[in-house]
Simulated scan of single mutants.
Amino acid sequence: MDGEDDDGVDHSLAHIPSSGMKVVASRKGKVEQIEWDEELEELEREKASTEAIWGAYYLKSSFRAKSEKLRKSAPGRPHPASSSVVEAPPLHLPDGSQPPPKGAKEEMQDFLDDLLT
């Protein structure tokens, strides 16, 4: 019967010892309790702040991508929605002069402020 058990067994690697293999102990079922302290509270606040920044960055980049897509969709022709929107001219300052023109960053900030309010 021993001859039948060896059928299909490759003995060409039998000379290599198996003691080099490490057995990893399973951690399944082991529970650790973490005590919530001020340091963990600070990490939680930093995580929330970072996630908010990532979310704002994602929102800005998705708006930019959509804007670029709309601009490229009909070159030479204004988009139908943009032709119906008319932006009011800036108000005069108290001394009667015009305010300085806004940069691209300030315009984006105003847009996001309007969007979020």
Rank of each mutant, 00 (worst) to 15 (best):
116 L>C: 10
92 H>I: 15
102 K>G: 13
80 P>G: 04
13 L>Y: 08
64 R>W: 09
39 E>W: 07
25 A>G: 08
22 K>S: 07
106 E>S: 15
30 K>H: 04
34 I>N: 04
109 Q>S: 13
58 Y>S: 07
67 S>A: 15
57 Y>I: 00
61 S>P: 00
47 K>A: 12
58 Y>V: 11
104 A>H: 11
39 E>N: 03
7 D>I: 11
88 A>C: 05
33 Q>M: 11
52 A>H: 11
57 Y>E: 00
32 E>V: 14
85 V>D: 04
28 K>V: 14
62 S>D: 04
48 A>V: 03
82 S>L: 07
117 T>L: 15
19 S>F: 05
54 W>P: 03
102 K>I: 14
111 F>P: 03
30 K>A: 06
5 D>Q: 11
26 S>W: 01
101 P>R: 02
77 R>D: 12
59 L>V: 04
17 P>C: 00
68 E>W: 10
44 E>L: 04
71 R>G: 12
107 E>K: 15
82 S>A: 06
74 A>K: 12
44 E>P: 00
80 P>R: 02
44 E>C: 06
40 L>P: 00
50 T>R: 08
111 F>K: 02
21 M>E: 12
44 E>M: 07
10 D>H: 02
89 P>V: 05
69 K>N: 15
26 S>G: 01
80 P>Y: 02
104 A>S: 14
75 P>E: 04
94 P>S: 13
11 H>S: 04
41 E>V: 13
50 T>G: 09
115 L>S: 09
19 S>L: 09
112 L>A: 04
56 A>F: 07
69 K>G: 15
70 L>A: 14
103 G>A: 06
31 V>A: 02
117 T>W: 13
51 E>A: 03
95 D>V: 00
57 Y>P: 00
87 E>A: 10
79 H>N: 01
34 I>E: 01
26 S>N: 05
53 I>S: 01
56 A>Q: 12
106 E>W: 11
88 A>M: 11
63 F>L: 11
32 E>R: 13
73 S>G: 14
17 P>L: 00
26 S>P: 01
69 K>W: 15
96 G>Y: 03
78 P>S: 08
5 D>Y: 12
44 E>D: 02
20 G>F: 09
115 L>H: 06
22 K>D: 10
90 P>L: 01
24 V>M: 06
33 Q>V: 13
16 I>D: 00
70 L>E: 13
61 S>G: 03
27 R>T: 05
50 T>P: 07
116 L>H: 06
1 M>T: 03
101 P>L: 03
91 L>C: 11
20 G>R: 12
64 R>I: 15
47 K>H: 13
111 F>V: 05
59 L>S: 09
28 K>G: 05
14 A>T: 07
